[in-house]
Write a protein that binds this DNA or RNA. Sequence first.
DNA 1: GTCCCGGTACTCGGATACTCACTGTCCGAGTACGTTCGG
DNA 2: CCGAACGTACTCGGACAGTGAGTATCCGAGTACCGGGAC
Lengths: 164, 164
Amino acid sequence: MKLPESTEWVLHAVTALAQLVPGEAGQPGQAVSAGQLAEHYGVPAGYLVKQLQSLVRAGILSAATGPHGGFRLARPAGQVTMLEIVEAVDGMSPFYTCNEIRQRGRGAVPVPPDVCVTTCGIAARMAEAEAAWRQSLSAVTVADIVESLPPGVPERTRQLLSRA
Amino acid sequence: MKLPESTEWVLHAVTALAQLVPGEAGQPGQAVSAGQLAEHYGVPAGYLVKQLQSLVRAGILSAATGPHGGFRLARPAGQVTMLEIVEAVDGMSPFYTCNEIRQRGRGAVPVPPDVCVTTCGIAARMAEAEAAWRQSLSAVTVADIVESLPPGVPERTRQLLSRA
DNA sequence: GTCCCGGTACTCGGATACTCACTGTCCGAGTACGTTCGG
DNA sequence: CCGAACGTACTCGGACAGTGAGTATCCGAGTACCGGGAC
């Protein structure tokens, strides 16, 4: 059970984009191309685009083609949770899927399931743990991450990512 | 991000083994062969052995070869947590591994990392969420699972798994 | 009758192929700017 | 001088190979029971 490496990429990419928002309500934030972000983090550009597309489909980012195009936040950073980002790139299928193996083989309950009719207790516990994980991630927004950065970092990021 | 399907197998297998413990202190519980368990749940026997071996290495089960051999609980069911079982079969490496991509590429901090010297805030949040997941699983023991079964199920399991 | 010995059947344990998601790369579609030509 | 059309450069978007963990299967090593024979 491991999250794909691209999860780290998009989390950092969204954090970087959030540092570019000028704070004005009407201003949607500067657009940065995937090539810029890829060079900034030293990751393959073509693959990063593929991941950022997932965020666009999820409504987290908005993309624009052509010169001066690129990706930008589609919503204020305070309204984007880490859970949304992770689910956008990794899918929102549960870790543990109950295949009801207790209903198969010799242990299967005969014709009408008189016992074991409720949901599997094991699956219920696993679902609870997973809910705790998701709840913890949904409690943190991108704005929280940006605010926790050491002072000076957003300024530096802005400078490095500003289109030359 | 998905747990391997074998996780379900071993969770149910351990639960089944826990239902066989006769409750006596000295009695270590009846041994059941992997073939019995595999037939009980309708899963491939050879592969199930491989997974149960992981539990043996983790000290959760004990194995005995030869006739009347098989697997049995190495500890009382109340001292085996779901987290132990999951970690035994899936490994205990974290979901999210921070590769410090912020330290690579153009965005890398020059020579001595004056800023960003602390651990990555994103990684910290992901670690918190993962800790919540593990904490939730470590709070449930196999004995809890057995107790939550509908009445009559342990008796039925004992009967089906008793060596013919 | 008792003990010892060999055979057999059953079990775990490890080594060997196969499949699919994640990773990485490529080329095509679309857009905004800069240039050029005509009025 | 002003406007419009064209070309170019840059961007995203989707389609095509490579790799590792998980899945599935097989055969070998080891052990306890069962039967037969000798004492």
